[in-house]
Design a protein around this nucleic acid. Sequence first.
DNA 1: TGGAATTTACTTACGTGCAAGTAGAATGTC
DNA 2: GACATTCTACTTGCACGTAAGTAAATTCCA
Lengths: 216, 216
Amino acid sequence: MSNTKERNEGVTRGERTRENILDAAESVFANQSYAAARLEDVAQQVGIKRAAIVYYFRDKQALFEAVESRLFLGLIEAVSARLEPTENHQQQLLALIDSCLDFMVERPSLARLILRNIADVYPASASDPVQHSRPILEFFEQIVTAGQASDEFGPVNAMQLMQIVGGGILHYATTEQLLGDDHRYQMNDAETKEVFRDLLHKTALNLVSNAQSQVH
Amino acid sequence: MSNTKERNEGVTRGERTRENILDAAESVFANQSYAAARLEDVAQQVGIKRAAIVYYFRDKQALFEAVESRLFLGLIEAVSARLEPTENHQQQLLALIDSCLDFMVERPSLARLILRNIADVYPASASDPVQHSRPILEFFEQIVTAGQASDEFGPVNAMQLMQIVGGGILHYATTEQLLGDDHRYQMNDAETKEVFRDLLHKTALNLVSNAQSQVH
DNA sequence: TGGAATTTACTTACGTGCAAGTAGAATGTC
DNA sequence: GACATTCTACTTGCACGTAAGTAAATTCCA
């Protein structure tokens, strides 16, 4: 009753192994490119032999896609849960930003996969490189469009706004160890994260505001 | 006189080949990860055999680092040229942003390499993943710090500001073909680029402004 | 209920292909 | 003719995929 092994109701050993493989593969595929990632490392992290992976996933490609799907589904679920439709488009926009930020900070593997998908002209996954991101893009666009229709937002280009806000989130979630000893931060630290969240909010609200640009 | 081949004053055949290899390698390394990139493709683009590459670059690694250095040096040069020191930190900040945006749009290969460097926990290049980016980071930080010292800027975190602005630039320069048929844009199109530049300016100025955050 | 049949969950071992690297020959150029 | 440049032909090694084997768990059935 006390330890985890005994209270996994109806979860077979195989199902656990499968999850373990996915977890390991997530970190392996996040930390290096698809081509550089080795199934040997995945197996080693799980504590099984490489060939055993094939028992659960047809090949490297299938494993990768399973990892990708699981991550994106998690994101979409997390975002949807926080997007209870409101009349207030401003709050929806901020909720979308918040949920993305929180999820990426929680599972930076996804941020890394997305960076790679963007950088790769021939992505590791399927033919359509944004098939998984699309729902998020659409959330974003719908909110902005709706906000503009109700005259709550000014005429900003939704995709450009997303490039700035989304770019910020992705980089916040991936450059933790990268900025040199003097600027290293902990993306998970509550204080740090809230400061960054405020910057994102400020940016988003400023860019969708109806006020005339102060530039020029 | 008219074509480029004829007016390379004192540039030997070998030097031209070397440049051609670098050009080809730049596109090959930009479009896919280091591990996925094939020297065969580089050679083919140049119109030589793979072994000939070795005559100029010791191995794949050396070629990659040459490509990386050339790109970063180009950026640093372009940025420096536009950063004539002024009293006005605000204009310096905008000049830095402008020069980065222009360079990335001109040579999106660099943007892709940077995205990979960020995503990779074990980057393709040397041990220090930001060795090449550092000068830019420092420009950025110095400008913000100086602006704050002179009370021109408010107390924003320089690195977080950079994550947002820099993230925006990198994504603008790399997602041209990615946003689906409905949102495809041309990053080089003057009009489109100016609109995006304004968003970046607006964002940067808003975030460094002394005004109290409107959020909360 | 206990032994046989079957399935689950792996391991060991091998084949295969691809891309990098290497050596030396051939060709071009001044 | 000598040096620079490029090619042909080969070796090496790695990582994937695949096939065959096995122990332990589960199910079947008299």
